[in-house]
Design a protein around this nucleic acid. Structure first.
Length: 405
RNA sequence: GGGUAGGUACCAGAGUGGCCAAAUGGGGCAGACUGUAAAUCUGCUGGCUUACGCCUUCGGAGGUUCGACUCCUUCCCUACCCA
């Protein structure tokens, strides 16, 4: 029922950042081949951020490979930690979520995740099930298995410590809690981004400390966002969402820097190794124009989530919009409740959300970033007649058809 | 518990009674150029306003003053050193 060891290892190894320790994984797989028992592959999910993007999909894609090899995917929703409210990064203390919210988010998470994952051999678990039952005595026993010095090895902690930034004690509990999850689930392999390496290793340590077989850890690279610098994240606005429309996916992919094309091809589109290599060498030798490589990448990504037809459509529309400077063929329409048919453009922009405020709208007009029916607006006091539908364009990408209700 | 240094706009960081909606840099947005790339150049970057001005903002709350980001009181928060 399982593919042979070597085949499995090749697939598992492809695209990974680190796989530790490889020989132990081989042993686990050998055993599963003998006993016919699937491995438990765990992936922790943050229920406070239920909007998945291509960055998440990197790890999910790896999980999918495990599923296809016959192993069990265990998606762990960190509802317990979510309820406490993770202060990592010192961003405003995240609002503690209620149980209900975490369940909802968990549900939404898995709905999106199944765009990548197979629904077969897929389990969803919530860590409040066991973490919520630990007594203070249990927690003390857990913390006794780890030292402060070990904790401070974590890059993020030591950096903050050196920089004189605050670290709350309970932040130390997060890695321990996550590690304990692996103890509770008898995890064979835990997946994560490279930033999770420390936490994953804690799981290994703790399993050993609790007399269990330690898990292997597998980290995937962190995919940079469309800005090419920061890691992809919703709060930075540099993400491509799994549920983005084909047009958005295509457009966002086209705006990534050249240096990331092959990376997006590999991790965003999950292209085969040979294809990625071909693209890399083509780019390097100059035989492949970066733009064409990018188009290929964008189409592959769209096709992965929306199918080939949608990819073609997105490409066609992109050509029309940006190469021929035309308007897209589908523009959202909005009807505004107005007293008279004419309205000041700044008001219209602010009301429809095309600009965040009237001041912002004025600035956009002054900067030359606003046009109505293809004509650039130059006067901040200008009005439009909205008795018929007019096409507004703000910046390069925002289009909206607006008329009086 | 004692001491020291701090808390300023998205971030970093100037500003020590009016010239401060607050220097500078980064980031962001827009324009030109392009391949919706990079680099470069230009403009903008609290809100409202028919641009005259008004309102909110410099950890919180009070106070002094004609006037406070700047002075005082008090509270909260952070780091470091000593115990």
């Amino acid at each position: 029922m399982f593919p042979p060891l070597n085949e499995q290892m090749d697939i598992i190894r492809s695209g990974v950042q680190e796989l530790l320790p490889e020989n132990e994984l081989a042993q686990k797989i050998e055993r599963s081949l003998k006993t016919g028992k699937s491995l438990q592959i765990k992936l922790g999910c943050d229920p406070s951020r239920p909007d998945l993007h291509l960055g998440h999909a990197v790890v999910l894609g790896k999980m999918r490979q495990f599923q296809d090899l016959g192993h069990n995917a265990v998606l762990l929703i960190g509802d317990f930690t979510g309820m406490i409210g993770d202060p990592t990064g010192r961003s405003k203390t995240r609002p503690a979520l209620t149980l209900e919210e975490t369940r909802q988010n968990g549900q939404s998470y898995i709905e999106q995740a199944t765009h990548v994952l197979s629904s077969e051999r897929l389990a969803l678990v919530y860590n409040s099930e066991w973490l919520g039952k630990l007594s203070f005595t249990d927690v003390v026993a857990l913390t006794a298995k780890f030292t402060v010095a070990q904790m401070l090895e974590r890059d993020d902690f030591s950096k903050r410590y050196k920089a004189g930034e605050p670290i709350s004690i309970h932040e130390f509990l997060y890695p321990l809690a996550q590690g304990y999850d692996s103890v509770a689930l008898d995890t064979d392999v835990e997946l994560g981004g490279t930033d999770q390496k420390f936490n994953l290793l804690v799981g290994r340590e703790l399993q050993r400390a609790y007399g269990k077989e330690p898990q292997c850890i597998l980290t995937m690279p962190i995919l940079e966002g469309t800005d090419g610098v920061e890691k992809m994240s919703k709060s930075l606005g540099n993400y491509i969402g799994i549920t983005d429309s084909p047009r958005e996916m295509f457009g966002k992919t086209m705006s990534i820097p050249d240096s990331l094309i092959a990376r997006y091809f590999r991790y965003g589109a999950f292209a085969a190794d040979a294809d990625v290599k071909a693209m890399e060498s083509g780019l390097q030798s100059g035989s492949l124009h970066p733009r064409n490589a990018k188009v290929q990448t964008a189409m592959s990504i769209v096709a992965r989530y929306h199918g080939d037809e949608a990819a073609k459509g997105a490409f066609g529309e992109f050509e029309r919009m940006f190469v021929n400077k035309d308007v897209p063929d589908e523009i959202e329409s909005v009807a505004l409740a107005l007293e008279s048919a004419t309205a000041a453009i700044v008001d219209v922009l602010a009301q429809t959300g095309l600009a965040a405020s009237k001041g912002e709208a004025r600035r956009l007009i002054q900067g030359g970033g606003v046009s109505v029916d293809g004509e650039r607006v130059s006067d901040i006091a200008a009005s439009v007649d909205l008795s018929t539908e007019r096409t507004f364009k703000v910046g390069k990408r925002k289009f909206l058809n607006i008329r009086k209700a």
